[in-house]
Design a protein around this nucleic acid. Sequence first.
DNA 1: GCACAATTTGAACAACTGGTAGAAACATAC
DNA 2: GTATGTTTCTACCAGTTGTTCAAATTGTGC
Lengths: 228, 228
Amino acid sequence: MSGSAPQDTAATKKTTRSNRSKETQRVRLSQKAIVAAAADLFARNGFGATSLDDIAYQLGATKGALYYHIKNKEDILRHIYLMVLTASEEPLAEIARSNAPADEKLSRAIAHHVSVAASRSPAMMVFYREHPHLSGPFAREIVERKKVYERYFEQIIEEGQAAGVFSPTIDAKIAAFGLLGMCNWLSQWYQSSGPYTHQQIAAMFAQMVEGGLAPTPSPSPAKAGDGS
Amino acid sequence: MSGSAPQDTAATKKTTRSNRSKETQRVRLSQKAIVAAAADLFARNGFGATSLDDIAYQLGATKGALYYHIKNKEDILRHIYLMVLTASEEPLAEIARSNAPADEKLSRAIAHHVSVAASRSPAMMVFYREHPHLSGPFAREIVERKKVYERYFEQIIEEGQAAGVFSPTIDAKIAAFGLLGMCNWLSQWYQSSGPYTHQQIAAMFAQMVEGGLAPTPSPSPAKAGDGS
DNA sequence: GCACAATTTGAACAACTGGTAGAAACATAC
DNA sequence: GTATGTTTCTACCAGTTGTTCAAATTGTGC
């Protein structure tokens, strides 16, 4: 009955067990490092399937040490959400506030969102995947802020429809959701080593969506090619 | 003092563990019912965070009974993947095989994919989320079939570019990924009780994307509504 | 060297995990 | 009724989970 101490409890997942007996140096942990490593593992294996042992192992530390820097497992997840939100919200709000024409606003919003999705892709994947594991008032706050973020896109589209640069036959909310899906999905397949930079991808997405929303292609939307 | 309060950090955990001693009637299980219930729970809480007890509980049965119908937990996941693939692959292949013009092919492909994403949304969410939990040759098979599926969209777009109905300035693979992201994302927000049917949404998506890809100013306007 | 705070360890814990075995309940045919 | 095969239940196993905590280790100023 007396449980035999699991001496060799290595991180039993996919990673091979190589006890860092060589470098006996203790590792300097930090909240940032923990959150970054956790985002990576959560994105790869899911929150529920990632253990604190896994996270500690990837940092070369032990599970107990994590608790000096974080409150609990859900706390790590909270930090990932805050990281994504602080990187996303303010730049978009500024774009929306500017008085550029709607189509240019939309291009810039797409570029911004694609940039976040590309550069923070593990955290981004976690963001849109693991909210069921958040609890309490924080969970509600996230839902609210996400809605506000989405509504910026919707408003830009509505603005363009009112100004006559976007077709009014498509519901702005559906268009915004479609556009966001397009961008968010990128965190599933984008690799910085691929043939296109995220700026190029954003430009293609913008061309795709804006051309489709434009009612009058007569002026010169496809061949204009000059910065306003 | 080992007064460690086992806090319920789980947010969306179902009701507390109350063995259904009230209704002692036994439940008729089936592989289909198990897979359906599991898809629902996996979509909501993730594969790793869903226990066999959870699945059994939602079916009003016990864990042991599941094993008469399924081999193990991963086997359930395999069935979910097969369900999505069998619903997706053949209709799309037929659309691609047809000799309709490329823009109509694309409209139909979008309608098909949106239909699958809308009607099988829990399974769809699982499909694009839990492949790390598949192992062995089946995992590789899924990756391969997914690639084939995506390539259909890419080919339709290339076809349209060659025929001059789609702009050649956008990389076909990127356009296909963007389009698929748009459709796949729908399983995250679509509710059949919403203001639009999935057919209407598919029509809007088609209008968005095809208009954007079209080089000529006059796309045929009212064109929607495809069967099945 | 010493004192004192910051940090990490390693073991312990209770709860829960996927999976198994055998007994029990059921259905159907005779 | 008995016999037989199908389906579900209960109880259990061995291992893993998140979390706590005293003790050990490290860093820093003197």
